[in-house]
């Protein structure tokens, strides 16, 4: 009988588990990679090479991966970004790093792209390439796929906010309104975000304690509270059973 049960359990588990890896990753697209530190990639511009850590040490960054041959989203995406950022009237204490994820792009291509948007002389904007495309796009969990038929990358329009310590603090996918960009800018400056409160030292019983250095969450006392009802119910029913057994024996 137990072999039948085991076989049935495996049959049920396999199809559901097989979907989980991909589903969980795609579902969490907007959140994956959050609070992870960026690799210290080297960014090449026509003015020379600079380490990513040097850039975010100076000021928080908004990263925008693009490619210059793009016939799709990149152009309206950058135009919208430029327009909506200017609407914010925010102090220029952060920078926008537009980097290419296409290995065929050169710093010169990127400079031409900057010229196209009249941003080549704007110190808030940096257009460059990197030799560590894979490391950077992996860290950002940036989704792209080369399409041989169209000779284009199918890719998402991603903006990633990186704070002055090099952590990805917020990701926005798709064309963004100035309101959402305002949230992104506030986040990379370390501004208070109502939507994502972290437990503080005066928080009673948390499920997990998140360590920003290791990027890992450790179980905390709150999880024990989640177990109390089941343990409590088990003890109560066992206690009642013992009392009822004694009573039955007395009656016999």
């Amino acid at each position: 009988m137990f072999s039948r049960i085991l076989a049935a359990a495996i049959l049920i588990l396999i199809p559901s588990l097989s979907t989980l890896g991909n589903e969980a990753e795609s579902v969490m697209g907007g959140e994956s990679g959050i609070y992870q530190r960026l690799p210290d990639a080297t960014i090449h511009t026509t003015e020379g090479a600079v380490a990513l850590s040097t850039l975010y040490d100076q000021s928080p960054l908004i990263l925008a991966p693009v490619f210059t041959r793009c016939a799709g989203i990149c152009s309206p995406f950058l135009a919208t970004l430029k327009g909506n950022l200017s609407k914010l009237n925010a102090p220029a204490d952060f920078r926008v790093l537009v980097f290419s994820f296409d290995p065929e792009d050169t710093p010169e291509d990127m400079r031409e792209m900057a010229q196209h948007y009249e941003l080549e002389n704007d110190s808030q904007w940096i257009f460059g390439t990197t030799d560590q495309i894979e490391a950077l796009t992996d860290a950002l969990r940036f989704q792209s796929k080369w399409n041989e038929a169209t000779r284009q990358f199918d890719h998402e329009a991603l903006l990633a906010g990186v704070n002055a310590q090099g952590y990805i603090v917020l990701k926005l996918i798709g064309m963004q309104s100035s309101t959402d960009l305002g949230r992104l800018v506030s986040e990379i400056r370390g501004g208070f975000q109502v939507a994502f409160p972290l437990p503080k030292s005066d928080t009673l019983f948390t499920c997990f304690r998140w360590d920003p250095v290791t990027g890992k969450a450790r179980p905390s006392l709150g999880l024990l509270i989640m177990a109390i009802p089941t343990i409590g119910a088990g003890l109560m029913v066992t206690g009642i059973s013992a009392a009822a057994r004694r009573r039955r024996k007395r009656a016999e």
């Binding site: 409160p197 928080t203 009673l204 948390t206 997990f208 509270i225 989640m226």
Partner: peptide, 17 residues
């Protein structure tokens, strides 16, 4: 009763449990 805050994640887990 206590000068402490609660963890919204724990509270939501308990609510739906």
């Amino acid at each position: 009763v206590l000068e402490a805050k609660l963890d919204p994640l724990l509270m939501k887990n308990l609510t739906f449990f």
